[in-house]
Nucleic acid binder design. Structure first.
Lengths: 214, 214
DNA sequence: ATAAAACCTGACTAATCGGTCAACTTATTT
DNA sequence: AAATAAGTTGACCGATTAGTCAGGTTTTAT
């Protein structure tokens, strides 16, 4: 017999759960937690509202499930980097990954942004702790690079912020960018933006852009 | 007799209108349009709910008034810059201005961010047109700088996006930054962040940071 | 002074929406 | 096959909340 988290368990209905989560992610990204109606999620999933409630009990619950699924994607090549690695390679790769995330999962990025703008009331202490630890570790690596004369920047933490800001901007502010450019950014435009960003950040840190990212 | 926009006019109550707008800005920044209750705005302004409705008729109306007030602040030193100006000076100044805006008007930045994330459903065509024109003009200036060999970047428009992204990040993601740094960013930390960002962007464009921004 | 306009607000309403419930069907176990 | 659990859904309810209204007070114009 399979274990269950709280009271009930899922068998075939697990597919429905994923269907609902996917629909909810799109709605929450567009309208936020408060602005999203359970009915909208149900309509998008092609199910009656009551069925959504059957699986997730409350709207808050559904939102938390969506959020949790998003935070599970928060891994990157930077996680395991050490000061013996080449900063140009690591940073270029890290930026590429985050840009790829903005291209393929814009709704995830938007939900995270909405959550932070609202003061992160639903981000559990567990995620926050892990995030602090992760950041401290990365800052330490960058500082070692600086000490080794491999990289120049005023502040390692601010550098991380600036990378996050630029990459997330392409997902969160896509509406603005689309309007300014007259069309949506596709794979081609994302590749150009990624190259431009890698060039800016790496050059800004006194690094040479690896040929594979030019 | 003074003219009025729709039907009525404001006299002494103009002070109240501003009081309400200020309270509404804070609430909308924290909870968004859908998530904000008129009662919350009224409470913050120290007025009965009906009084808020008296001045602004509907919640949407109030939101639009807040938004309009925010967009009126969208001016900068970059507006009048030409290709004969020094790009290092202009960009450093522009970044400083935008960072100052994030420090002093974080709620404004957040409301704008929420609006864009939601697909900009309330940004009138007038603002959008103006914004496109402004951006095209600035891109042209940067491209002239590039042609003159004063500045290096892959794409002028992406450069603007990256500047916006970084500066707005300090307002919009303040909750995250506060958590990672263990305390809120004050004037001192903003000055350090501004210098780090100016260094990154200008160096990234092959410019030398002016002494006054070091 | 007085008329008119602007301003103020408690009481109320209509509509929305999250969530419950009970009856039902389908799947699984033994 | 029969018992039990999981899944499905229409009908309904209570709470919330945007917005109305009517009757008042204060301010301003003349």
């Amino acid at each position: 017999m399979t274990q269950n988290k709280t009271i009930k368990e899922g068998r075939v209905g697990a597919a429905n759960k994923q269907l609902i989560l996917s629909a909810a992610e799109k709605e929450f990204a567009k309208n936020g937690l408060k602005g999203t109606r359970i009915q909208q999620v149900a309509d998008r999933a092609g199910l009656p509202k009551t069925n959504v409630l059957y699986y997730f009990k409350t709207k808050e619950n559904l939102y938390l499930a969506v959020l949790e699924q998003i935070l599970d994607l928060w891994n990157s090549v930077f996680d395991q980097a050490t000061s013996t690695d080449d900063p140009a390679e690591v940073l270029a790769r890290y930026i590429s990954e985050k840009m790829e995330f903005s291209l393929t999962r814009p709704e995830s990025s938007k939900i995270f942004a909405l959550e932070i703008i609202n003061g992160a009331p639903n981000l559990g202490g567990f995620f926050k702790e892990r995030h602090v630890t992760w950041t401290e570790g990365r800052v330490a690596v960058v500082n070692e690079w600086i000490a080794q004369g491999k990289l120049k920047t005023d502040d390692a933490e601010f550098l991380l912020f600036h990378i996050w800001a630029c990459c997330q901007h392409y997902a969160d502010f896509a509406a603005q960018i689309t309007h300014l450019q007259g069309k949506e950014m596709g794979r081609v435009e994302y590749d150009r933006a990624t190259k431009a960003l890698i060039g800016l950040i790496l050059t800004g840190c006194g690094l040479v852009v690896p040929d594979s990212y030019k």
